[in-house]
Design a protein around this nucleic acid. Sequence first.
DNA 1: CCAAAAGTGTTGTTACTACACCCATGC
DNA 2: GCATGGGTGTAGTAACAACACTTTTGG
Lengths: 230, 230
Amino acid sequence: MGYNQTAVLVAVDCIVFGYDGEQLKLLLIKRAIEPEKDRWSLMGGFIGDDENLDGAAKRILLQLTGLHDVYLEQLHAYGTPDRDPIERTVSVAYFALIDINKYSKQLNDQYHAEWFKLKEVPDLIFDHPKMVKAAMDKIRYQAALHPILFELLPKKFTIPQLQALYEQVYDSPIDNRNFIRKITASGLLIKQAEKDKSNSRRGAFYFKLDRQKHRSQFQSFLNFIPKSIK
Amino acid sequence: MGYNQTAVLVAVDCIVFGYDGEQLKLLLIKRAIEPEKDRWSLMGGFIGDDENLDGAAKRILLQLTGLHDVYLEQLHAYGTPDRDPIERTVSVAYFALIDINKYSKQLNDQYHAEWFKLKEVPDLIFDHPKMVKAAMDKIRYQAALHPILFELLPKKFTIPQLQALYEQVYDSPIDNRNFIRKITASGLLIKQAEKDKSNSRRGAFYFKLDRQKHRSQFQSFLNFIPKSIK
DNA sequence: CCAAAAGTGTTGTTACTACACCCATGC
DNA sequence: GCATGGGTGTAGTAACAACACTTTTGG
């Protein structure tokens, strides 16, 4: 019975991005099993018997970060025959954007996880460098068209914080006057009464994301990024 | 030896689009094996032992259409446990854009393949309807930003033909005056001396795609589609 | 000479960029 | 009162959408 074909392993690997207010970062773990034990790696795992791909990605992310309900998107499937030297494994890569403050730090120890600045990512196993590159490209692409970078910020955030994040993602300075206008014109933000005074005497107003509008406008091809950067 | 995990089958399914000058169409085959024998299906196949995913997709497409060098893009991986009732199979879907004229018709018989208008696609097996929907969404998304629809046309084509194709893809009328201006301003087309007189007494000039510019501008977020349609 | 499709021109509007300045406040 | 980031204002430009007309040519 069955199709009489060679079966292979299917894994899910997660590229987890976080933003600490200064730097865009990547969450990596020290691999616990052979081969390549103790080298840096993306967090991954094999799919369970009763699990779909999205479910596996969510489970892995929960294990690693303690977080449900994070932004998670399928990136690409990788299937070169020798990408895993032990046994043929097709890997479906997902990328996640999380609020680094919600991330539970206890899990650091359990998985020997660490946050790395994007420009200081260490050597990674297998084809994980390719996955990281693809994830970064995809985020740039997506963020130019859709409001996804909010997922990296806390519930309350200031516009200068948001701008700094965009500048990180695109590795380019952005004119703050034009940025503020575009963001506020989008109608996606709800101004709070409170101010963040940690960065200036005057203080910057906090904003919350209007989740309603965010959902309805997600496909509306926003353009927070000046064309000159693209 | 190995990871001691449950292995599953990995297949590739191809969503093949073609354009006959009038209608955007989908190439489907009559499934030759159980289960669901004789029902309509996407063309697919299991990955070979020495084959990566892209390679499998190219092989399947060659078998079905006789074509090398077609536009082929990975769409999404599908892995719900019961999506194939016989044996657990993860499928990586690819979509292809081909010039329907180059397609070799002999293969029709071998695979009992047929072209279907997009609005007249029959019931499909498994989760293939979901794949077709996703492919269509992706093409709309991609075509709004990148010049991919040229892949569906013959080497020489007229601007009215190209416009009709865009109108098919977006199922909306487009102003021909604005369309012509945008397309010509893109610099992607090389005007030919010859005219196509099949549709009018006056005749419409043929154009070829400037492959050089096409490659270099592929990422430059072209916008042939009026924002009102999006 | 006329029908029918191909192609050119114009105009108002919007969205964007590139600028310089004022504002609030803790020290 | 002044230094420091936060926020507002403006003007020139480019891209776009909405619109009407002229051109070509086989019959």
